[in-house]
Amino acid sequence: MIKLHYDEIANRLPVEVCRDFAIFGALSDQAISYLIEEGTLFSLKVKEELFSVGERSDSFYIVLEGRIAFYKCSEGNWAFLSDYNPGEQIGFVGMITLQPRVGGAYMETDGTVLEISSELFHTFQIKYPEEFSVMMINLVREISRNLIQVGNMLVDLTADVGHKTG
């Protein structure tokens, strides 16, 4: 991972582009700029690890460019769960639940991510309380969609055509 300064990517990722990302939906340009400038930007190469199982979950990441694959680990078994694309977040659930990372995140393409630490998230809440509420709705919406996707995967894996209801 290579740490970046926003000036290095501002021409290809101006606030006007970031505004269209789901996680920033309905946030002001000022709030988006604050998060991008106060967060930590990283450039990653294909196959590079963003985080691994067991690491502290004291931040989450917003995908700005590229695609990330997330693999969940349970009792030594690994399974692919989801891809994360520009405008989506990864790691928020772990940060909020105060649990170590439960899997590994790996770049599927070259990309750029924005790390939002728990400290920055807290400061954002204080500095932009109304926008924080909107961002929370955006986060919950994305997590809810992920839960539906995982539920569908579970059904696909365990479906018993002889026991349909309804």
Score class of each variant (00 low, 15 high):
154 L>W: 04
159 A>M: 11
124 F>I: 01
120 L>W: 02
42 F>W: 06
137 I>S: 12
45 K>W: 01
39 G>L: 04
84 Y>F: 15
154 L>P: 03
51 F>L: 05
63 V>H: 01
78 W>Y: 10
60 F>G: 00
88 E>F: 12
58 D>H: 09
6 Y>R: 01
121 F>A: 05
97 T>A: 14
17 V>H: 04
45 K>P: 02
65 E>L: 00
34 Y>H: 11
38 E>S: 06
81 L>H: 03
107 M>Y: 03
96 I>Y: 14
8 E>K: 01
73 C>N: 14
32 I>A: 04
97 T>M: 14
14 P>N: 07
81 L>D: 00
94 G>Y: 00
119 E>A: 00
19 R>I: 00
9 I>L: 04
62 I>G: 03
115 E>G: 01
19 R>H: 08
136 M>L: 15
51 F>R: 04
31 A>N: 04
10 A>K: 05
18 C>T: 02
60 F>R: 08
91 G>Y: 03
24 F>I: 04
96 I>S: 11
156 D>R: 14
138 N>T: 01
159 A>V: 12
71 Y>H: 14
163 H>I: 07
144 S>H: 07
18 C>M: 08
80 F>T: 07
25 G>W: 07
97 T>L: 15
163 H>M: 12
39 G>M: 06
166 G>C: 05
60 F>V: 05
37 E>P: 03
24 F>K: 12
150 V>T: 13
13 L>M: 02
99 Q>G: 10
132 F>K: 08
71 Y>G: 08
4 L>E: 04
55 E>L: 11
113 V>P: 05
131 E>G: 11
117 S>A: 05
71 Y>E: 14
142 E>W: 03
122 H>E: 15
26 A>C: 09
61 Y>E: 08
88 E>D: 15
52 S>W: 08
36 I>F: 07
42 F>C: 00
65 E>Q: 07
155 V>A: 13
68 I>H: 01
74 S>P: 02
129 P>N: 09
137 I>P: 07
7 D>W: 03
37 E>Y: 00
60 F>E: 01
28 S>Q: 07
3 K>E: 03
90 I>G: 02
17 V>C: 01
19 R>M: 03
96 I>T: 13
54 G>N: 09
163 H>A: 11
164 K>L: 14
44 L>W: 04
23 I>A: 02
92 F>G: 02
22 A>G: 11
91 G>V: 02
67 R>Y: 04
82 S>V: 11
124 F>L: 05
70 F>D: 07
154 L>H: 06
150 V>L: 13
12 R>F: 00
129 P>V: 09
106 Y>N: 03
50 L>W: 08
52 S>Q: 14
69 A>W: 09
89 Q>A: 12
6 Y>V: 00
22 A>E: 11
147 L>A: 05
26 A>T: 09
87 G>L: 10
2 I>S: 13
10 A>P: 00
104 G>A: 11
1 M>C: 06
57 S>C: 07
75 E>T: 05
15 V>N: 10
136 M>N: 11
149 Q>W: 09
117 S>G: 12
145 R>F: 09
68 I>L: 15
80 F>P: 08
85 N>W: 10
159 A>K: 12
